[in-house]
Simulated assay, not measured.
Amino acid sequence: MNSAMRPYFGRSSRLAVALGLLALSGLAARPALAEERAKDLFGAEKLPAAAAAQSIGFYSKGCFAGGVAIPMDGPTWEVMRPSRNRRWGHPAMIAVIEKLSRDAAADGWPGLLIGDISQPRGGPMLTGHASHQIGLDADIWLTPMPSRPLSIAQRESMSATLMVDEKTHLVKDALWKPQHTALLKRAASYPEVERILVNPGIKKKLCDTVKGDRTWLRKIRPFWGHDYHFHMRIGCQLGSPNCKAQEATPADDGCGKPLAWWFTEEPWRPNKNPDAPKARDVMTMANLPKECRAVLDAPGPASAEAATYHGGAIPVAVAEPEAPPLPATAASGTAGLPGTLNAFTSTPEVGVPVPRPRPPAH
């Protein structure tokens, strides 16, 4: 285990117990924040909650503790838009990203340009995504890493390549290479990865061109946007009893009627209420699981470097003695949530407005 990680994770057992007592006793700090917007509170956090790694809630309504950051640079990756401070995730998520970068390089992909993963403690983001809240989502650009290292300024300003024609919703054939297909196939091959969101045009391209083994295509799910990156999602991890799983993808390759729907007029009709607030913009702490209060108020590591992942293919947190999980208290604002949820089904009633049917971001 990297020595830089010991001060951070060595205290995890004591901190997890403290967080549990805090949540159980109802003494979580800042009780008056129940009506404050959760995105403002979580968006202001610069460092993770120093506790055992644990995802809490659902991908679009939750938080996480024990997050680690992927290094800004690796032999086969670079982090983009670093000023957003969204290079944090559950250790298992960061391990999968690093593994993908190595395997993809062996397959012929020059290296990954990594977009948003999560905020240090997850939760709703100030801008952009509805999901990415529990440390189990990551965006990977479909633009390969350049041969020369990018400067910080270039990482902030460089535009990704749009792979799909906005009018036809089809992939631009001149841009799509076999290496793109190989990259998505490699990501889908990992058992930890449950689904990969791509633009419908990219899904159609794969359906039309993939030969031989097509079983991995079931994990490739069409969704709005995602025309310059793909969204990789892993499942709930051990040690996260309050993580709500998403229902499994269908067993078929997804190239039939569900995909055909995306090439009708219905998905692209103008939004009848474009000014309606997004769920993240009105979500308060009362709408999140109660454990997220303790996560928000937990102490953090000494620095970002102290919580930067250096564990290779094995999550650092797994090598440590398992800390007691946060208590399984009832989740405020999530009563009645089913055990599994799906981004393609109606949003359950959870005390916040239902997101628009055609979200501009995921």
Rank of each mutant, 00 (worst) to 15 (best):
I97P: 04
I97W: 02
E98M: 14
E98C: 05
E98W: 01
K99E: 11
K99C: 00
L100K: 03
S101M: 10
R102G: 08
D103L: 09
A104T: 10
A104K: 08
A105M: 07
D107K: 11
G108F: 06
G108D: 11
W109G: 09
W109N: 08
P110T: 09
P110R: 08
P110Q: 09
G111R: 09
G111Q: 10
G111E: 13
L112S: 10
L112I: 11
L112P: 10
L113E: 07
L113Y: 03
L113H: 05
G115F: 05
D116L: 04
D116M: 08
I117E: 07
P120I: 06
P120L: 06
R121K: 15
M125W: 03
G128M: 01
H129A: 12
A130F: 05
A130N: 07
A130Q: 12
H132R: 10
H132I: 00
Q133L: 03
Q133P: 04
G135A: 02
L136K: 00
L136V: 09
L136I: 11
D137A: 06
A138L: 07
A138Y: 06
D139Y: 03
W141C: 09
L142Y: 05
T143H: 02
T143C: 03
M145L: 15
M145W: 03
S147Y: 01
S147L: 07
P149T: 05
S151A: 02
S151R: 05
S151E: 04
A153S: 07
A153P: 04
A153F: 02
R155S: 01
E156H: 08
E156R: 08
E156P: 10
S157V: 06
M158Y: 05
M158F: 04
S159R: 13
S159A: 12
A160W: 02
A160Y: 04
A160Q: 09
T161G: 02
T161M: 05
L162W: 01
M163H: 01
M163I: 12
V164E: 06
D165N: 13
E166R: 07
K167F: 01
K167R: 08
T168I: 03
H169N: 08
L170W: 01
K172V: 00
K172P: 00
K172I: 04
D173S: 11
D173C: 00
L175Y: 03
L175I: 01
L175Q: 01
P178N: 01
P178C: 06
Q179K: 05
Q179Y: 01
L184Q: 12
K185M: 12
K185W: 04
R186N: 14
A188W: 11
S189W: 04
P191L: 10
E194A: 14
E194L: 13
E194M: 15
E194H: 13
I196V: 15
I196F: 14
L197W: 15
V198Y: 07
V198G: 13
P200N: 11
G201N: 13
I202Y: 06
I202C: 13
I202R: 10
K203C: 14
K203F: 13
K204A: 13
K204T: 07
K204Y: 04
L206M: 14
L206H: 11
C207V: 15
C207I: 12
D208C: 11
T209I: 07
V210Q: 15
V210D: 14
K211Y: 02
K211L: 10
G212T: 15
G212I: 13
D213Q: 12
T215D: 15
